[in-house]
Every structure is written in C-alpha cells, then in structure tokens.
Write a protein that binds this DNA or RNA. Structure first.
Lengths: 195, 195
DNA sequence: ATTTGTCTTCCTACTAGTAGGTAGACAGAA
DNA sequence: TTCTGTCTACCTACTAGTAGGAAGACAAAT
C-alpha cells in the first residue's frame, strides 16, 4: 500500500515541512527520526551532514519549481494567465497549508548563518524565479497584455518581493487570505485595460 | 569610558543582532555570554527564559520604532516625504549593516514555532507599522500628493510587504542596493505627478 | 545450486559538545 | 540588613555526528 516512496524522499519531505515551519536551525535529525520512524543514524547514512541534507532539499525544491513553472508556461495561453496561475498556486498552498511558505524565502532570511553550500543554492533559486518572471513579463509586454513602468527584470524583482512579503504578512497576521489581498492588486496594476 | 549602558540593554543589543542574523533558534545564551563577557547564569538573572528575553526585545524594538516613526511624522513636512524618509532609513540600515533586517520580519517567518508571547508581539508590530503607513497614505491622499488605487489600509499592506520582500531579496542576492531598487519604484508609483 | 563478496539500508550504542535553566555563594550598595 | 548583580558549579535534555555490526539483495564464481 506504500506509494513506493523512497526513504530519502521521505526524509526530504519531512525536513522540508520542518524548515518551512522553523528554518534551518528549527529542526534536528531527531525530529525527522521521530516523524518517519527511523533511527537518527540511518538519516546520516542518506545525508551525512545537515548541510548536505538541506542542500539536497533546496536542489530538489528548485527542480520541482522549474518543472512547475515550465508546465505553467505550456498550459496557460497568455502571459497574463501565467502570472495569475502562479499566484493562484501559492494562494492554494497557503490556504490548505500544504506548503504555507516558500522554502527558499524562509532560508533567505537566515542567509548570514547558512552553510555556503545552502546559501548559494537559495541564491540560485531566487535568480531562477526572477528570470522566469522577467520572461513572462517581457512576453506580456510584447503582446501588449502587460504594461511595464520599468525594465522587465526590475518589475520581476518587485513582483517577487511582493510575493515573499505577502507570505510573511499572511504568517504574521495568521491570515492566509492576506497573501492574495496583497499580491492580486500588484498583478492587476500590471494588466492592461482590464475591461 | 563606558557609555553607562546597562547590562540588560547590552544583552538585548547583542541578542537583537544575533536574531537579525539567524532568527529565534539561531542564537543561544552562550553566544550572548561570549559577546559581552558575562556568564550565562547572569543573563538568566536579567531574563529568566529565552522567551521572556525575546519578548522584551520585541517590546523594545516596537517602542523604538514607534518613537522613530513619530519623529518622522513631526520632522517631515509632507506625507510623501515621510514615506521617502522611512525607506531611506531602512536603506541606510541595510547599507551600513547596522540593522540589516527587520527584527519582526525575521521572527514573523518563524511564527509557527515561536512562543506565543513572542508571536503576539510580532503581530502587534506588524499591526502598528501597517497602521502608521495607512495614516501616512491617507493623509497623502487627502492632500492629493499620493494617488491610491485601493483603500489606504490595503495599499499600506502592499507597501509593507514590498519592504519586507525587498529586505529578503537584498539578503538572498547579497546586494544591499536591491532593497532600494525594489522599494523606490513602489513609492514612486504612489506619488502624484512627480514633476 | 551454492557459495562468496559487495552493496545498501538500517540498527544499537556511543561521543563530544551545546541547549536552556537552576542552586547557592559572595561582594558591594542601599 | 536586605537587595542587586555577578559568579562558580552543576543539571538534564538535546545537538550533530561516528563506530561497528546485522540483514537482506544481487551478481559472479564455484
């Protein structure tokens, strides 16, 4: 009946939800051990050090994101829809608490005391996400669906910051709806002539 | 030669810079002890538990913020200038690394595993800051210096999220200039006819 | 077919060091 | 004298990480 999910995947799953809740220093091997019913030492077999574990986790996260964003570009017709779908994805994650915060946004806050191998991967995720947003915005501007006041990459950075800040506010206020309340208007102002 | 700064203030100063670097679980009594040359037990005399220490820290932080924002309202003539000054303040803090991140933004990310006495104070800070921004935006709109697409409190939440998200991006990219690059355009779009 | 060796995964048992926190003594100031 | 701040010395629980071995899977050699 087990969905044939490997132990190392289970470890990463648990570690991810723990990181999302409390960051790099907010979980221990013992926590993972308890959650999946395996000894601490066995986790060290799969991931010798905590830094390696989290680095692998961020790699997987970025890979999943990459896949998700690619799927989004292929499914949604217009750049405007792609933007909406991206925001809706996070809205759903936050609402049903499956992934109530971006792993890399969480870790980014802790940058100053993150192992370099983790910090560099977090930076890579930020670069990648900003790149995706830039290309969507640029395409939208070319098709005259989106109106940009600044260069596409600047607008992408602004949008990304809004998304992360909105996650933070949703958490601080304990109100999942706050995310959409902040991000949707930011999207709306980019869309040309919404009538 | 000591500037007559009390031990408990020193403790809070060090704890604050450590929290800003690594969050609630990113520092220990031993770290503070090492930094100010006092035994761990002596810190427990001033702040019996870690939760109490951080709660006191956030109280002080909010109080300082309150004072700073009030001063800002009294010094700066127009609401537009107040907004600019607020952003400039953070820009300076991030640039010279005196306070490269908002204490409460840091803690907000860790909300799910924060002691309730800390979480509630972080929430209070968010409320207070949002309130200040709302009143500045409302005043600006009344004087027709600021153009609001949405209700003042919604625009305030959007601005606050931008500020926090911009701090996160500046950290992730290791580029202090990123903060201003993201926030300044957000302010600019609110200002009416900038010529 | 059985043995041999290797690889993987997990285990028990352990280490050194750190976590937050406590008890009690002492010195100086009020 | 009592109160405040600091100290030494200690506690229990937990931290990441290690040592060494048991059990099974697989493949090649016998």
């Amino acid at each position: 009946m087990n969905a044939m999910i490997s132990t190392s995947e289970k470890i990463l799953d648990v570690a991810q939800s723990l990181i999302v809740a409390g960051g790099y220093n907010g979980f221990s091997y013992a926590d993972i051990s308890d959650a999946i019913g395996i000894r601490k030492a066995s986790i060290h077999h799969h991931f010798p050090t905590k830094a390696e574990l989290v680095a692998a986790l961020v790699d997987r996260y970025r890979q999943q994101t990459e896949l998700g964003l690619k799927a989004l570009r292929e499914q949604s017709a217009s750049p405007a829809d792609q933007l909406q779908a991206y925001v809706n994805f996070w809205q759903a994650c936050i609402q049903d608490a499956t992934l109530p915060f971006c792993v890399c946004a969480m870790l980014a806050g802790e940058t100053p005391m993150l192992p370099e191998e983790v910090a560099s991967r977090v930076r890579a995720h930020f670069h990648h996400l900003a790149g995706w947003l830039t290309s969507v915005l640029r395409a939208g501007a070319e098709q005259q669906l989106i109106r940009l006041d600044k260069r596409p990459d600047d607008e992408a950075q602004m949008l990304m910051a809004s998304v992360h800040g909105a996650m933070l506010s949703a958490r601080a206020f304990g109100d999942p709806g706050m995310f959409a309340a902040i991000v949707k208007p930011q999207i709306a102002r980019l869309l040309v002539a919404n009538r």
